[in-house]
Structures are given as structure tokens and as C-alpha cells.
């Protein structure tokens, strides 16, 4: 059966606290901390981008998969912050891991769900017998406009998943997609920062599509919330995944292992895939996991996984996600953050 053969994540070491951002803009830090359940977020250094984080996450996935990278037949990087406007991130990634030249490559872009799109397509290609292994990556170094609400959450991170039908650590039991034209968040060509519809990003966007995808896949699989050991929803902040989980009948215990956003922020295309990786880090054989991504624009991809016994062999072959999140952190002030993120206009 088709499933995840290897998985890996990468989180930059630098962090900025919500209070350090709020102080600069005269905002009330506790309202973000309590209202959106956000404490701090990851920050990439100037020498880290979607490509570099994708490579590190993919290397961790390869360590767990223990396959020959030249057997990877497809490399898909999902991101809204591809370093090049024209030249796929996947070209550099595939070259860096040694998957070239017999490999299909494309970049995906769908706000925060581009990562699960690549995973979705890899599953289909493996199932069709067109490729032996497929690599789907979700990675972003997202930008929020200075002073905008998004600046408190837009973070950096990557997750990589290799799919195949042997050496599987989590079988794919079901997939489902739910998508409409909903303009809740966008970035026009040549614009540096995205725009969003404020509260419109909630009810008709995030909640409608996640609920639609979750209910759809559960109906397809004839399952209820109680049939899953763990669940991961997209995490634009700390609060939304908890609230949508409650609305769908899931408990905090089911959400907890993959709930990274309070100290990670929103890693956009990396967000729910990193939650899945963190959940696999502690899962046991037989556990059933529901993953529902969300991308503005707007749509959700949903997956049901069943963990196999091979998980015990691979989980400690590469760094665990929660360890990367909690250890070796370097806190920076807003000035350093602004420099790192290219927010300071310099003389040319």
C-alpha cells in the first residue's frame, strides 16, 4: 500500500518573541498571546530560504527512508516564497540530494497548502505506478507587512515526505480535496507583502474549508473523530486549529503532538506537514492520523494515515521536530529581525 517512506523537518534556530514585535508597533502583546495563542516565531537568517530549508528537511526524510535518492522519480516543492520567480526550487533541491537527472520536477504554490499539494500528487503517481518514490516538500519563509497582524505569525520552516509502496512508515488510507474561489489572502505580482481580508480569513475561509475537507474525508472513510488517534489542522496561529478541532469533535489530546504554532508561528506551506512530522515522531504502530491542510484562495487537502511498525526503526534516525523547536534557540530583537528579513531600506 502507498504511504510515507520517510519524513523530515527543518526549523531555523532564530526566534523573535511576540512581545518584541508588539513593543515596536505599540500593540498589546498579551492580546496576541492570549487571543491567538502565539508566544514566539521562527526567523530565517539571510542565508536561509525556502530552498535551503527544503534541502535540510529532505535530507532528514532520506535518512529515515533509507533509500537511494536516484530512485526518487518526482520532486515537488510547495511554497509561497520560492526564491526565484522563474526557476523551480525543486531543481536545486533535487540536485542537492542527488535525485537528478531522471526525475520529474515542479514547484507548487497555493498559499499555505502548497506543501500538501506536492504530497497529494506524489501519492497519486506512486499509486499509478509511474514512479517508485516521490518527494513532496512544504517550505516557506513567509513575510508579514511591518505592523500587520500577520507579522506576529509569519514564520519559517520546512517538512519533507517521501512516498512509496515499500518500507512504509504510515500507509495512506484515504485522500480528499475541498476547494472554492474565496479571496481571503493574496499577493499580486511584484508586491513584497501579501494582503488579507482581516476577519474574512476566518469563518468563510479557514473554518469552512477545513470543516468541508475533514467532514468529506471522514464520510468517505466512514469514520468519526473518535476513530483517530491524532489530528493535525493548518496552524495560522495557535487558536484556529484548537477551535476547528473542537467544532469537529476532536480533543486536545488528539491535537497536541502536532500543535506547534504557539512557539513556531505559521510556517505556511510547512505548517500542517510539520505538525504531521511531529505527530509521527511520537506515534505508534496502528495509530490513525487525520491531516487537513488549508491554503487561502482557498482550499484544503485531507489525508488519513495509518502508522506501521517501521516507525520505531526510523523516528530517531533524524532530528525530531519538537527537539528542533524547543532546543538551541537564539532570540533576536526587532532590529536584527528587520535586518534578517530585508525590511530595512539601505543605500544602494
Amino acid at each position: 500500500m502507498v504511504g510515507i517512506v520517510g519524513y523530515g523537518t527543518y526549523i531555523p534556530r532564530h526566534r523573535i518573541k511576540v512581545e518584541a514585535i508588539a513593543k515596536v508597533w505599540g500593540a498589546d502583546a498579551p492580546s496576541y498571546e492570549r487571543g491567538l495563542l502565539l508566544k514566539e516565531k521562527s526567523v530565517p537568517t539571510p542565508d536561509q530560504d525556502t530552498i535551503t530549508m527544503s534541502v535540510e528537511a529532505a535530507k532528514n526524510a532520506l535518512r529515515r527512508a533509507q533509500i537511494d535518492p536516484s530512485e526518487i522519480g518526482a520532486v515537488y516543492v510547495g511554497s509561497e516564497s520560492h526564491p526565484y520567480a522563474v526557476k523551480p526550487s525543486g531543481t536545486v533541491l533535487a540536485e542537492a540530494i542527488g535525485a537528478t537527472p531522471e526525475v520529474h520536477c515542479a514547484d507548487f504554490e497555493f498559499a499555505c497548502k502548497a506543501g500538501t499539494e506536492g504530497m497529494f500528487v506524489c501519492i497519486g503517481l506512486v499509486q499509478a505506478g509511474l514512479i517508485r518514490y516521490g518527494l513532496g516538500v512544504g517550505a516557506d519563509t513567509s513575510q508579514g507587512a511591518p505592523g500587520d497582524a500577520l507579522e506576529y505569525s509569519a514564520a519559517a520552516g520546512a517538512a519533507a515526505f517521501i512516498f512509496g509502496d515499500d518500507k512504509v512508515v504510515a500507509e495512506v488510507e484515504e485522500t480528499y480535496a475541498y476547494m472554492t474561489d474565496t479571496p481571503d489572502f493574496w499577493r499580486r505580482e511584484h508586491q513584497f507583502y501579501p494582503e488579507h481580508g482581516g476577519r474574512f480569513t476566518g469563518e468563510p475561509a479557514y473554518f469552512k474549508h477545513i470543516m468541508g475537507a475533514a467532514r468529506g474525508i471522514m464520510a468517505k472513510a466512514n469514520a468519526t473523530a473518535a476513530d483517530f488517534t491524532y489530528v493535525i489542522f493548518h496552524q495560522p496561529n495557535g487558536k484556529f486549529p484548537q477551535r476547528v478541532g473542537k467544532m469537529l469533535g476532536f480533543t486536545k489530546t488528539q491535537i497536541e503532538p502536532g500543535w506547534l504554532s504557539p512557539t513556531l508561528g505559521n510556517t505556511y506551506s510547512g505548517s500542517s506537514p510539520m505538525g504531521l512530522a511531529s505527530t509521527l515522531d511520537i506515534a505508534k504502530a496502528g495509530d490513525r492520523i487525520l491531516l487537513v491542510s488549508y491554503g487561502s484562495g482557498a482550499g484544503s487537502d485531507a489525508f488519513i494515515f495509518r502508522v506501521t511498525e517501521r516507525i520505531d526503526e526510523v523516528r530517531d534516525v533524524a532530528p525530531r521536530t519538537r527537539d528542533q523547536l524547543d532546543n538551541n534557540k537564539v532570540y533576536i530583537d526587532y532590529g536584527t529581525y528587520a535586518k534578517f528579513r530585508g525590511k530595512i531600506r539601505k543605500a544602494t
Partner: peptide, 11 residues
């Protein structure tokens, strides 16, 4: 003598 490892970065 410090232990280090290789990481892929933008040069």
C-alpha cells in the same frame, strides 16, 4: 575542536 555539521545555505 568544536563539533560542527554541514548545512545547505545560501552563499
Amino acid at each position: 575542536g568544536q563539533r560542527v555539521r554541514i548545512e545547505f545555505r545560501l552563499i
